[in-house]
Simulated assay, not measured.
Amino acid sequence: MTQHINPQLAATLPPPVMEARRWIDGVTFPADRPLLNLSQAAPADPPPPPLRQAMADIVLTDTSAHLYGPVLGIPELRARVAADWSTAYGGEISSDQVAITSGCNQAFTAAVATLAAKGDNMILPTPYYFNHKMWLDMEGVEARLLETGPDLLPDAEAAAALIDAGTRAIVLVSPNNPGGVEYPAETLSAFRDLCRSRGIALIVDETYRDFDARTGAPHDLFADPDWDDTLIQLYSFSKAYRLTGHRVGAICAAPARLAEVEKWLDTVTICPNGLGQRAALWGMENLFDWLAGERQEILRRRAAMDAGFDGLSDWSVLGCGAYFAYVAHPFDTPSDVVAQTLVKSASLLLLPGTMFGPTRDLGGSGRAEATLRIAYANADVDGIATLFDRLAEVTAKGL
């Protein structure tokens, strides 16, 4: 007898990165053309040696790192986030407005748990981060899709037309995944004002904020003394300190909302990873210059991407920044077919736009079939040069 499966979970698309990995199962790549994997937006290297040494010392000497800790995170890390964010954004953030989570994905799911019930809706600009859409689908919360412009920027006035009595939040990601676009401060302010006027939340995922090309605060949302009546900010330590496997994220929100987050987290993970939290704190205390160097390296790779596409006139760059380039391919073939074909024809693993937005048959504009995401943070400048050599070759001869 077949056991019942939650229909909302069954209807949710499979994890895109895992799906893409299956495309390379059993494929033999030529010795002179090894696979260049630009599919996943995560550091390919472990934490830097000083941080790994600090983590080893913590494992050996800090008994508390191995035990249950506070559900909302260790006080020292919450306080450090509050202090650093207050300085960086020119606002006032207190430690009781900060919670630590098991990665930024969990920060998002916890925020949604406090906001929406089955049958409610949230607004996601397209192209969207697929895990955001997947979680809403699993929870029976409608993802109400907001088409962005040619520059991949969402428009608050267009979003206003999608809001109804069941709308609970608008979700923005900046710098954007998958688009790479850095949202202007005035765009974020316009969405904050819209959300406040309609009594809904504004969720801003800033996972990639450490690699923003702009200097200074990317927005002034925290400068508003009443920021927590509307704003919920999400963050990831995974990208900044290469702590992907240790799962450490953060959520900034009103203390009353975090009290609800605490209920949810206590039933899911009980507490964030003790070693990961202490590693994140050590990184914040000791790796400022190292992180600045990491940002400069990402900016060099971004410049290499821009230069490379300047030489590929058949391709169009819709957005490029942080870890990503989001590009329109020149082939008269849907992007999911293009991406799978590139595995064998060019030894490239990229993600298709169909993983980040609806296809035409589902009401999409056609952008999903025409685009690819390139996670260039996983390749150095030489690797990016190899990428363009292969794209030029496949463009010239066709798929």
Results as ranks from 00 to 15, higher is better:
T2S: 11
T2M: 10
N6I: 03
N6T: 07
L9W: 08
A10R: 13
L13D: 08
M18F: 05
M18A: 13
E19D: 12
R21K: 12
W23Q: 13
D25N: 13
D32I: 11
N37S: 09
P50G: 11
D57M: 14
I58A: 01
T61F: 10
S64N: 11
A65P: 13
H66V: 14
L67F: 12
P70S: 12
I74T: 12
E76W: 09
R78E: 06
V81D: 07
E92D: 15
S94Q: 14
D96N: 15
I100V: 15
G103K: 01
C104Y: 07
A111Y: 06
V112P: 07
A116T: 06
K118N: 12
D120C: 09
N121K: 15
I123N: 01
P127D: 07
Y128T: 13
F130K: 02
H132K: 12
W135F: 15
L136P: 06
L136N: 01
L136I: 02
G140N: 05
P150Q: 11
E157L: 15
A159T: 03
G166E: 12
G166L: 12
R168A: 02
V171D: 09
P175H: 04
P175R: 08
Y183V: 10
P184T: 08
E186K: 06
T187C: 09
T187V: 11
T187Q: 02
D193P: 07
L194W: 09
C195A: 14
A201P: 06
A201E: 06
I203Y: 01
Y208G: 03
R209D: 14
D210M: 11
D212T: 08
T215S: 11
T215Y: 03
P218I: 03
L221K: 04
D224Y: 05
L231E: 04
L231M: 07
L234D: 01
R242T: 13
T244C: 12
H246Y: 15
V248N: 05
A253P: 08
A254K: 08
V261E: 03
L265N: 00
L265R: 02
L265M: 00
D266F: 09
T269P: 00
I270F: 08
C271I: 06
G276Q: 07
W282G: 07
G283Y: 07
E285V: 07
N286C: 10
F288C: 12
G293T: 03
A303P: 09
A304R: 10
M305V: 00
D306H: 09
A307T: 14
G308E: 07
F309C: 12
S313V: 14
S313Q: 14
S316R: 13
V317H: 02
G321Q: 05
Y323V: 11
A328P: 03
H329W: 09
D332G: 04
V337K: 05
V338Q: 02
A339H: 01
T341H: 11
L342W: 01
V343S: 00
K344D: 15
S347K: 03
L350C: 01
T359L: 14
R360T: 15
D361I: 10
L372N: 05
Y376Q: 04
Y376F: 13
A377L: 10
A379N: 06
V381M: 04
D382F: 06
I384H: 01
I384M: 06
A385Q: 10
F388Y: 06
F388S: 08
F388R: 03
R390D: 04
L391P: 02
A392H: 02
A392W: 01
V394C: 05
V394N: 03
T395V: 07
A396S: 08
K397M: 12
